[in-house]
Design a protein around this nucleic acid. Structure first.
Lengths: 151, 151
DNA sequence: CAGTTTGGTTTTATAATGCAACCGTTATCA
DNA sequence: TGATAACGGTTGCATTATAAAACCAAACTG
């Protein structure tokens, strides 16, 4: 492929995010990590990913501060991979992907896993809000280039 | 690569979503479409993508119902690519990616584009809420398999 | 009507992926 | 305790996806 393009230098945060976690496997590994998986073999079995690819992905996810390798609590010798805060903060991305998928990628009546509030058992929502908390539609959002924001 | 794995049959909505828009370019094309770009050349210039790849991605995005080819309003002969409702509903995904990127992928003080409310000019938020609208942290969410939900 | 822009397709190279085989270390168990 | 299986990878190879560039037809421009 003569080296895949990188968006690391782009001024758009979405582009940089995709540069970091935008490949086929990384977000699924993160999803499984949210689901409580920690070990190489668990990820491998859950995803059906080739082991060399998994090893490489885990390595880069660790490099990028999304996972952290830790020694297991039970004193075992194997390695565990845990989400960092940075990794946990990918949660909204996962929820957004999930909601879109639920809506458009499943036949009516087809079953799928669901994300629920642990305490009430009710489904979770993801809302786009104005700065003062009012719901907002996509039409009202505008991307403004950095020159106009002076962040 | 001996054919990339597909998650189209997975019961997890996130996985299916990634199967549809999880490649390197699709979401960036969608981002540009949100930004008002409609023509082949506009996408090509904005993204710096190879033209063959762009053509292929536009084709699959159309196939998958995220973009729709329309004749331009000014009667020109060229093709325009517009977001469908399905495509517009990817908005939360983009916002989520953007917020994560803003937080973790920019140096303090480094400028980036911003997503603002067109009417007030203030930044937009994305919140995870319980079913009755209370903010919630990632820790309280649980993924439950389809067998337990009977959706 | 000649030249340029637009919107692609084709060709070619190289890198990313998947698969299977292999290997050292760690649990399991008779 | 010794054998054996499972775990956590690494290595090599076949194949595909991607990028870059050349090419090309149709539409626009002067």
């Amino acid at each position: 492929m003569v080296r895949r393009k990188s968006f690391g230098g782009d001024y758009c945060p979405s582009a940089r995010s995709l540069d970091v976690i935008g490949d086929w496997w990384s977000l699924l590994i993160v999803r499984d990590a949210f689901d409580g998986l920690t070990r190489f073999g668990e990820f491998q079995k859950s995803l059906g990913i080739a082991k060399n690819i998994l090893a490489q992905r885990l390595r880069t996810l660790v490099e990028r501060g999304i996972l952290i390798p830790v020694a297991p609590a039970d004193g075992g010798a194997h390695q565990e991979y845990h989400l960092t805060d940075k990794g946990r903060d990918l949660f909204p991305v996962m929820v957004a992907l999930r909601q879109w998928g639920e809506r458009y990628l499943f036949a009516p009546g087809e079953v799928h896993s669901t994300l629920v509030d642990r305490e009430t058992g009710k489904p979770i929502r993801l809302d786009i809000l104005t700065h003062d908390g009012k719901p907002i539609g996509p039409g009202r959002a505008v991307i403004v280039p950095p020159s106009e924001t002076e962040d």
